[in-house]
Simulated assay, not measured.
Amino acid sequence: MPELPTVAAFTDTYLPTVNGVTYTIRTWRERWERRGGRMDVVYPGSPTYDPDAGEHPTRGFDFPFYDGFRIGLPGIPDATEDVDVVHAHTPFLLGLSGRRLAGRVDAPLVASYHTPTAEYADYLADGRLSDTVERVALAYERWFLDGVDSVVVPSAPAREHLREVGVDAAVRIVPNGVDTEFFGPVDDAAFRDRYGLTGTLVGYTGRHGFEKDLGAILAAVDGLDPDLTVVFGGDGPARETLERRAAEVDADVRFLGFLEREELPAFYSSLSAFLFPSPVETQGLVALEANACGTPVVGVDAGALAETVVEGVTGYRFERGDVEGFRESIRRTLRESVDLRESCLEKRESTSVEHAVDRLAEVYDEVL
Rank of each mutant, 00 (worst) to 15 (best):
L275I: 05
Y66N: 14
C293A: 09
D40H: 15
R194D: 14
S329F: 02
P77G: 11
G54P: 03
A53Y: 05
L94A: 11
D222I: 07
D213V: 01
V41C: 06
T180D: 08
R159S: 07
G72F: 05
A170M: 11
D52N: 14
F210P: 13
V165P: 01
T308D: 00
A361Y: 05
A8G: 13
T13G: 04
R335C: 04
D250G: 09
D67W: 06
V221T: 04
E211S: 10
Y49G: 03
A107C: 12
V363Q: 12
Y364M: 03
D84C: 06
D227Y: 10
M1C: 10
V231H: 05
E3S: 14
G103M: 10
L109Y: 05
G321K: 10
W32K: 02
A9P: 06
V178D: 02
P265V: 10
T205S: 10
C344P: 03
P74I: 13
V21F: 05
G312C: 04
N19C: 00
M39W: 10
D187T: 08
V357D: 12
A251T: 06
A139Y: 01
F255G: 00
F191A: 08
S269Y: 04
A247R: 13
D227K: 06
E141R: 00
V21H: 09
Y113G: 05
G127K: 12
L218Y: 06
A158K: 03
D67Q: 15
T11R: 08
E119N: 15
W143D: 11
